[in-house]
């Protein structure tokens, strides 16, 4: 599903250049549940963002489901984000003036799905994450765990090939974190490829494969 070869990425701030990813080789197969571990600043988010086509890389090759992701136009990137990828962020990133159902329906809007149909689909996914009764609630009326479940429903609604989650439990307490992880595991059991960035060991323990990132390179990969 994901094939990275010799990926390099630097950030340029003013005249200074910060080499963050220093040659990443990585293969994640379809249907895997993978976590990326590493200390703060090791480049986890950077890696996930370029896999998610939210940012671009300087060097190397990246194949997503067999397609080379290089020099994409904005429209192509939008297409892949819309059809192939589902994002879950640490800070949820729900649109504050849309209710839960409308938030979940938004990626479908960009797929050109009609309003009624996308609302129905949105409700279906809210039901899946156990939030059907909260469909009409605005994000600020939801708890952190609920928000993250809405975000997961939103990531799933567009039927992506891959879920990318950057510290999905980072803003949640332990119990809620475990609930969210249960949900992600369940999604994985249904066949979805899931990549989770975390720096919590217990969260990483719950995945099949842990990629340890240190200072921009993959130190080791452990499998459970």
């Amino acid at each position: 599903m994901i094939k990275l070869h010799n990926i390099h990425k630097s950030y340029h701030v003013g005249k200074e250049s910060l080499h963050v990813l220093k040659g990443i080789d990585l293969h994640i197969k379809e249907g895997e549940l993978v976590s990326i571990m590493g200390s703060s600043g090791s480049g986890k988010s950077t890696l996930l963002n370029l896999v998610g086509l939210l940012d671009n890389y300087d060097e190397g090759t990246y194949h997503l489901d067999g397609n080379l992701m290089k020099n994409l136009t904005e429209n192509q990137a939008a297409y892949y984000r819309n059809r192939f990828l589902g994002f879950v962020f640490q800070s949820f990133n729900l649109i504050s003036f849309k209710n839960a159902q409308e938030n979940v329906a938004l990626p479908l809007y960009y797929q050109g799905v009609k309003r009624e149909e996308r609302n129905a689909i949105a409700l279906e996914y809210l039901d899946k994450v156990g939030l059907k009764p909260w469909a009409e609630h605005m994000p600020n009326e939801l708890s952190g765990g609920q928000k993250q479940r809405v975000a997961i429903a939103r990531a799933l609604a567009s039927k992506p090939k891959l879920i990318l989650a950057d510290e999905p439990t980072g803003a949640l307490d332990t119990t809620t974190s475990y609930e969210v992880m249960e949900l992600l595991k369940e999604i994985h059991h249904e066949g979805m490829t899931v990549v989770i960035v975390t720096h919590e060991h217990d969260i990483a323990e719950m995945t099949q494969k842990v990629i340890h990132l240190t200072d921009g390179i993959i130190e080791k990969i452990t499998e459970h």
């Binding site: 998610g52 904005e74 939008a78 984000r81 990133n93 729900l94 649109i95 960009y110 939103r154």
Partner: peptide, 16 residues
């Protein structure tokens, strides 16, 4: 900006 970023992450094209 954030809202627009979210929309783009969800697949909004520049034109839209």
């Amino acid at each position: 900006t954030k809202e627009i970023g979210i929309r783009k992450a969800l697949g909004a094209r520049p034109n839209s």
